[in-house]
Design a protein around this nucleic acid. Structure first.
Length: 139
DNA sequence: GACGGAAGCA
DNA sequence: TGCTTCCGTC
């Protein structure tokens, strides 16, 4: 544990391990949790390595939405919004630009990037545990 | 597709 | 406050 996102390189040197704090994974309606936030949900799917609707991109913190409408449907199910679609979900992502949670990877379709340092600095609570997720780096 | 204003909702 | 809904613009 530490104040930042912990990063470990694996033995093969092909990937890095990241430690996300537990609030990024807290289920929507578990005791003590607030309404799930979109970027928590994205980290949850990415950390799970679920691999279908969303996945890590080439750069650190970058992710690619592989199936926008499926991601929107999953998000809609979580929030109880059956008419959610990528147009609406992407508007929510664009509100993250000014909050400095995310930014767009320009020129790359469906590709965004987390500003991890800001995320951790602002939201890391006292005494939280971490869970391990895996992110791949290129070359 | 991506952007961002505007209004609405809990 | 953090989206959701809708939409005009590029």
């Amino acid at each position: 544990d530490s104040k930042g996102t912990d990063v470990y390189r694996d033995k093969e040197g092909t990937g890095v391990y990241m430690l996300f704090p537990d609030w990024a994974y807290k289920p929507a309606w578990s005791p003590g949790s607030r309404q799930v936030q979109l970027w928590h949900f994205l980290l949850e799917l990415l950390g799970r390595g679920e691999g279908g609707a969303i996945g890590w991109g080439g750069e650190w913190g970058e992710f690619v939405i592989r199936d926008p409408e499926r991601l929107a449907r999953l998000w809609g199910e979580r929030k109880g919004k059956p008419h959610m679609n990528y147009d609406k979900l992407s508007r929510a992502l664009r509100y993250y630009y000014n909050k400095r949670i995310l930014h767009k990877t320009k020129g790359k379709r469906f590709t965004y990037k987390f500003n991890f340092s800001k995320l951790i600095l602002v939201n890391y609570p006292e005494g939280s545990q971490c869970v391990k997720a895996k992110a791949w780096v290129t070359s």
